[in-house]
Amino acid sequence: MEFDPQTALPLGLLGLMVAFALGWLASRFDLKQWKREQQESPKAYYKGLNLLLSEQPDKAIDAFIEAVQQDPGTSELHFGLGNLFRRRGEYERAVRVHQHLLGRGDLSVTERDRAQHALAQDFLKAGLFDRAEAAFKALEGSAFGTDAKLELLTLYERTRDWPAAIEIARQLEAAGAGSFATRVAHYHCEIALEAETCRRAAEAEAALHEARTAAPQAARPRVLEGHRHVQAGRHREALAVWDDLLAVQPTTFPLIAGDYAASALACNDDAAASSRLKAVYERQPSLDLLTALLRLTPDAAERQSLLRAHLQAHPTLSAAVVLLKEQLARGESLSVADAEQLQLLAAAAAKPGQRYRCAACGFEAQHYFWQCPGCQTWDSYPPRRQEDQ
């Protein structure tokens, strides 16, 4: 068969037209499919968000998984899903989501650091402290560097790695993240306590010195130093340290008021100590200070006067118990005024137990309700008061 140019030309043109038509149809099909996917993905996302706001986390997770499957390239959906897993305690699934993100090659540096930070938080929440530490350290120099150091500080506190905590706190201070002096002082105090437990006196003393150097106004180093003197039988030295505490942090003094009185009695300095305690008590009355002051007051009538004055000004059950002990120790019966005061205290203390509590929402009321005023549930109040249950 001979070649006819006039016939070949229309056939070639027809082939080109067919190819163009097929390409156009394919592009239209792909475009429609892409539009449909783009429409379905936000729908699934908003569905998950709505379920989450409606406090239906299980269904919300299913919706987010569907959205991720429809649009696996969207990193925000992965972050949202991973955070949901972590909040629900499903740390292994959260780790898988964030590791998948880190394995993608199309993430920007910022998104990669964000995924690394999320993965480190997963490990921390799961209790995998070694892996969390390594993950946080990998963020050094990134936009999440300061946050990672703060998380590391928390991690070292939980694992009681005080030297590492001190180092991280110093780095944070150098980076301008604020002052960590008080926390560093606490870390040194913890080191001192551990050294004292292991009978390493020199190390404990050095740690307390570092604590006072880190935070000169901190109360805890002085409290511990005084206790060390007491354990060694150096009561005058303990009193001197705690006098310094009284001058620097007077609000903390009630914590060691009883020990202060005991040391004063041990070195026959009870008169001077009683005078100091009275001055402190007048400025900031507390039962701890009163109890210490009573130990230094030999006269029974004066002790009774101090107790009644405190109970009248500060009517608490704890103060009433101290008064009762004092009366029993003396073998005396309560006066009418004391009995009336104790009756008022007992009535006030009994009030919380006289309430009814809704079994559905916990709403408490003095009167019984057939329908809870809080959650509107019927028959949700047990017919017994709290103190009877």
Score class of each variant (00 low, 15 high):
S27T: 10
G15D: 09
L25E: 08
S75I: 11
G12V: 15
E37T: 14
Q69H: 07
L22Y: 03
S54I: 02
K47H: 11
L51N: 00
Q38L: 12
K59Q: 15
S27R: 14
A21T: 04
W24V: 12
D62G: 01
Q33K: 00
P10C: 11
V68I: 12
E55T: 10
L13R: 06
L25W: 10
P10Q: 07
E76Y: 09
Q33S: 09
V68G: 06
Q70L: 14
G15H: 05
A26L: 14
A21N: 02
K43S: 11
P10F: 06
I61R: 00
I61C: 02
L52C: 06
A19I: 11
L11R: 00
L14T: 06
K59R: 04
L16Y: 04
A19S: 06
G23D: 07
N50T: 14
F20W: 11
V68C: 10
Q69M: 09
M17D: 00
V68M: 08
L51E: 10
E55K: 06
I61D: 07
G73M: 11
L53V: 14
K59E: 15
R36F: 10
G12C: 09
G48L: 01
A26D: 13
K59V: 10
L16A: 10
M17N: 05
Y45I: 03
A60N: 09
L14D: 07
L22A: 07
D30K: 00
I65G: 00
G12P: 01
L49Y: 06
L31S: 13
A21M: 05
S75E: 14
D71N: 04
F64E: 02
V68D: 08
L25V: 08
Q39C: 01
G73F: 08
A26G: 06
G12K: 01
D30Y: 13
W24L: 14
A44R: 01
D62A: 15
E76K: 05
E66W: 01
A26H: 07
Q39T: 06
E66K: 05
Q38P: 05
